[in-house]
Amino acid sequence: MVKERVEAAVAAVPDPELQVLSIGELGMLREVSVDDDGNAVVTLTPTYLGCPALELIKADVAAAARAAGAERVEVVVSMSPPWTTDWLSQAARAKLTEVGIAPPGRASLPLLQPGCPRCAFPDTEELSSFGAAACMALRLCPGCGEPFEHLKAH
């Protein structure tokens, strides 16, 4: 009972940099366990090793788990298996497009060009393979002339 509540609450924690997605939708949440005394262990995997949002996410996860009824919360960071953008659901990809972020292609083809998330123009240009967050690249659409962010396949 508590486990389901904690799991749902933790999965719904928004990513601080990609506010439109939760850590559940991003695939960062690997496991939630709650023992009989209500002590929860939440296992997360980082998107990037140096992701500065991780500390904040850990604090948000602990707070969400406690609010959902967990007594004590331990947040464990696990590197293996390594996170990949392939874990993003179709729904998550659609949400990204909706807010003007081009969703990632397949991780096996990281340099594949994304189309424009605004006008769907296929042939976009890379401005920089690094953006305001570790996971983003900056691109320009020659179709509508708008710059946009691209969540890099990883």
């Binding site: 980082p46 990037y48 090793l49 140096g50 992701c51 500065p52 920089s128 393979s129 690094f130 953006g131 305001a132 570790a134 900056l138």
Partner: peptide, 12 residues
Amino acid sequence: VALANLALDQLG
């Protein structure tokens, strides 16, 4: 931005 990201990856 790119070099800051490279540095951040190395730091991680």
